[in-house]
Amino acid sequence: MKLSLFLVSTAGLWVAANANSVNNKQTKNDVCTHPFVDINGRCLFVNNFAQMDWDAARAFCAGFQGDLVTLDEANLLADIVDFIYKEGLTDRSYWIGGSAGAQTGAFVWPDGSLVRMGTPCWGVLDNIQRPGAEPNEKCIALNKDNFFFFDNFNCEGEISVICEYKFQRENRWAEGGCATMKSSAVFVFLAAALLGSDGATEAGSHVKTDVCTHPFVDINGRCLFVNNFAQMDWDAARDFCAGFQGDLVTLDEANLLADIVEFISKEGLTERSYWIGGSDRALEGEWTWTDGSSVRMGTPTWGANGQNQQPTGGSEENCVGLDNANFFFFNDFPCVTAMSLICELKL
Rank of each mutant, 00 (worst) to 15 (best):
F6K: 13
W14R: 13
A16R: 11
A19D: 09
N20F: 09
V22E: 10
T27F: 07
V31L: 14
P35L: 02
D38V: 03
L44P: 01
V46A: 02
D53Y: 08
W54R: 07
A57N: 07
A57K: 02
A57Q: 05
R58V: 05
V69S: 04
D72Y: 06
E73I: 00
F83N: 04
F83D: 09
S93F: 08
G101D: 15
G105Q: 11
G112N: 12
M117L: 15
G123Q: 07
D126K: 15
I128G: 10
Q129Y: 13
P131L: 13
G132E: 14
K144P: 04
E156A: 13
R172F: 13
G177I: 01
A185F: 04
V188H: 00
A193P: 01
L195H: 03
E202Q: 08
C212V: 07
V217H: 09
G221Q: 12
N228E: 04
D235A: 14
D235Q: 14
Q245P: 07
Q245E: 15
T250P: 01
K266N: 09
G268I: 02
E271P: 00
E271R: 06
G277C: 05
A282L: 05
G285M: 06
G292K: 09
S294M: 08
V295D: 00
M297P: 03
A304N: 00
G313V: 09
G313Q: 05
L322T: 08
N324A: 14
A325L: 15
P334R: 11
C343L: 10
